[in-house]
Amino acid sequence: MRDLRDESIPQNGSGFNRRDFLRGSGAAVAVTALATSEQGAVAQDAKKSVRTAEPQDITLNVNGKDHKVKVENRVTLLDTLRDDLNHTGCKDVCDTTNCGACTVLIDGKVTYACTRLAVECVGKKITTVESLAANDPVIAGFVKHDAMQCGFCTPGFVMATKAFCDKNPGATLDQVRKGLGGNICRCGTYAGIAACAMELVTKGGK
């Protein structure tokens, strides 16, 4: 065994032969390393499941309705919703998974649409703020508590609040604040949003 010097992680000798790594490196989220060249690659029959980089027709189910769009793999769900389907309730604000303005539900899971490719969402149910009825309690709550000013972050906050309150009836103020920490408002409407969410969780969140 290695000694317990305070040099933490071994720089070598992990039992793995290091190999030149990346141009770019392993990407996020369970990543694999990236090679600099085609070395070691064996030409395989292209998998049927591989979508080439060219634009292709896909079908997205948004708010219960199927939509056909032609997009490249690299197009995010956010851009597809906004540019191709004109669902502009989800906003493009930070584009870096920080602000929550693009929040949608995918198969019921609350998600930043900027972190999803459109092709990833084929076969899934996408729910946007446009699905909410005019008398939706979350929308009504935002209006009642004046939880908006310029309104640009608001639809994303509405979706996050809806997802949180549906899942957490009876939540405390601390839990509300913890749950909604993935959204940013610049105008400073947090007090109204918190009051709105508290009222919704107290009612049971529906």
């Binding site: 989220v29 972190t115 999803r116």
Partner: peptide, 26 residues
């Protein structure tokens, strides 16, 4: 394939940021 110049997409949080910033080019 592609000599391993491939990226894994799961939660997507960081991968998308790296792709958008052109830090990696799988």
């Amino acid at each position: 394939e592609h000599g391993g110049n491939t990226a894994v997409l799961a939660g997507g949080t960081d991968l998308m940021n790296l792709l958008k910033r052109d830090v990696i080019q799988p």
